[in-house]
Design a protein around this nucleic acid. Structure first.
Lengths: 371, 371
DNA sequence: AGCATTTATGCAATCGATTGCGTAACTGGC
DNA sequence: GCCAGTTACGCAATCGATTGCATAAATGCT
């Protein structure tokens, strides 16, 4: 079917070994034969068979990325970044979707090492620590976004304590004192850390923590919906909600829409992790940006590093943090400003005019996009 | 490192061949040895090496999906569906992102066949017909969403003529006569077909086509922004815009937001291809659903079929269509109903006050929410 | 010129499976 | 009890590369 190394060798009247050495550039062949074989290989349209090579070398030029889903915008960005980076280096990305499910994750991991992947970037569920640890002996692994506490793997995390702190502080600075928090499951790194950042900001501001304002739950829209309802039904509902559970955002929006709640006039809304449409939503939604692109890039960097320094095990195992950034748009309002001052009428306070919006988008455009 | 067939064979005191036959279940071994070997293999934790197997059999248990990006919600859905279906059958999905770029597509295709993929589902750019055609001799290929006219590959398409027709007719039925169309590049199947569906609906309604209302462009948000501006700047702007270019939707929303245009009061908006947040947007955005999930499922079905009937080449090459569906939400209004009847304020010119906003959201609350 | 090195090449084993062919062992029919 | 026909298994080749070891050729050194 396709041209093999043997064909090339025969055409050049040399042995397969020589052909192999010439084409892989081991420097063990004469300049002349090397060039001659390169030419002949090109003429014949020879393409090395990665499977055959892989059998011998134990490498596959395949790197896997295991994420929970593709609905989460951060995971989309990560998938695109990882794929682009790897392709440039001659690797193919195996994208796997684990659904944040322990069993699926476990199965997938097994299949992946069967396929002799050269590296793995994984967003761990945290429930397969032992397995991950075992696999790490055979293949370089980098954890992304979440830590798996049962392992000591290299890990690239968002700075969630800082992000949640920044977001909460922003709301406090706008005059909010009762701030609802909808956050992820507390058995995940991000869930815990975002809660802690929120708590710290409150403490610093001298606001006593009110647990009825905190709703932790699974990473699904329903969490947002029920959490939001619970918060709004409180005797003294919050004036702002910080949705630090990305997937929950849709649920929150649904409930505020159903209940006819105007944002930011009736309620300020701050979300976590950017999505393309947050900027075009009306009002544009302010967010804490977790830096998905930079997280992915760093994870790839670290993985490549480990793949190069193969074998030199867990000497330099380290944890990295990518800083969070607050991106102010139009979904949070200053509490002390009366609502009437914010409508279309020409006033001094910033309105939702196109000027304000374009300013917001300008600030986000100011950051240079990478990759 | 890992347990090989040889280890299993030795442990069972049989030859590798017997072990192989017993474990792959060829029926060429006695019942007893088969069971014994299965047991021993399990005890030893034997996992067949797909690379070694692949070298001999020429198969990799890898199936590739090549899409343009992961931003488009349809592609996200397709990736998730394909991955899930394939995994259930013991295949791994290689997800590739081609960026709708001919060169990238070509490179990727080459790499993929190098890796001896067992099958390929591709959203073609349409610019690598010859290459695709050549590859189709070696590996089963199914085209998805777009046809590549230079080939005669099995193709699964959305029913874009019908979808665009349904959408346009819906707007016409609401009383709209001047309907702007923002549509994809005319060198793509979907671009052409959606335009034709739009034209047909107009013709049937006896509305003469006005080319100043039609804006075709690349599949990027900018197309929506410039198209929308062009339409709004017309001496007689349209009363409705049909955004039949999915990626352009964000651009359109940005412009309408910038210009303070109330939807659906000032302008009706109908989009193409669903996204999770369309339903939660305020107003909820009516769409023509292209059936991404069903498209992906059908593509997998067809691919598996071809992979089974391997070699029996292009006998049954066929084109499939998955029907479109109109999903009415709140972004299109009936033209003959005066606005005053819909908004709380008794004025003709809608403002961006919270009153206007809550009016819009009230109508959205009336629709029962799905999902 | 003669010997020691370096350089370039070939032979053959190897990676871990699958598979055609040959053969011993077993079955059944008469 | 003998022979044909299965059945179960082993031997060895094979897939397409890489690589250790041996050797021939080219070079350097005195």
């Amino acid at each position: 079917m396709s041209v093999t190394l043997k064909d090339v060798a025969q055409a050049a009247r040399v042995s397969v070994s020589t052909a192999s050495r010439a084409l892989t550039g081991t420097g063990l062949t004469s300049e002349r034969t090397q060039q001659r074989l390169t030419r002949i290989a090109r003429e014949l349209g020879y393409r090395p068979n990665p499977i055959a090579r892989g059998l011998k070398t134990g490498q596959s030029r395949l790197v896997a990325l295991l994420v929970h889903n593709l609905t989460n915008a951060s995971f989309q960005v990560m998938a695109e970044v990882v794929q682009a980076r790897l392709k440039a280096l001659g690797y193919q990305m195996l994208l796997c979707i684990g659904g944040d499910d322990a069993q699926q994750e476990s199965d997938t991991l097994t299949t992946l090492v069967d396929h002799r992947i050269d590296g793995l970037i994984v967003v761990p569920t945290g429930k397969n620590g032992p397995q991950l640890k075992a696999l790490a002996k055979d293949v370089p692994i980098v954890c992304l976004v979440r830590r798996d506490d049962a392992t000591d793997l290299e890990t690239v995390l968002a700075d969630d304590p800082q992000g949640a702190y920044l977001g909460t502080r922003h709301l406090i600075e706008l005059g909010h004192k009762r701030i609802g928090l909808i956050v992820g499951r507390q058995d995940t790194t991000s869930g815990r850390e975002r809660l802690s950042g929120y708590v710290r900001a409150l403490r610093e501001a001298g606001i006593t923590r009110d647990d009825t304002l905190i709703h932790a739950g699974h990473f699904v829209p329903e969490t947002g919906a029920t959490g939001c309802r619970k918060l709004l039904d409180l005797p003294r509902p919050p004036s702002a909600i910080f949705v630090a559970n990305h997937e929950a955002t849709l649920g929150v929006l649904r409930v505020t829409a159903e209940r006819n709640i105007a944002i930011p006039d009736d309620l300020s809304l701050l979300c976590y992790e950017d999505m393309p449409w947050f900027e075009w939503h009306r009002p544009a939604i302010s967010i804490v940006d977790n830096g998905a692109r930079d997280l992915a890039n760093l994870a790839v960097d670290r993985l490549l590093h480990r793949m190069d320094a193969k074998g030199n095990g867990n000497d330099g195992v380290r944890e990295y943090r990518v800083g969070a950034r607050l991106i102010k748009r139009d979904s949070c309002r200053r509490l002390d400003t009366p609502i009437s001052a914010r409508s279309t009428k020409p006033t001094s306070s910033p309105s939702k005019s196109s000027a304000a919006r374009s300013a917001a988008s300008k600030s986000s455009a100011a950051k240079p996009a990478k990759v």
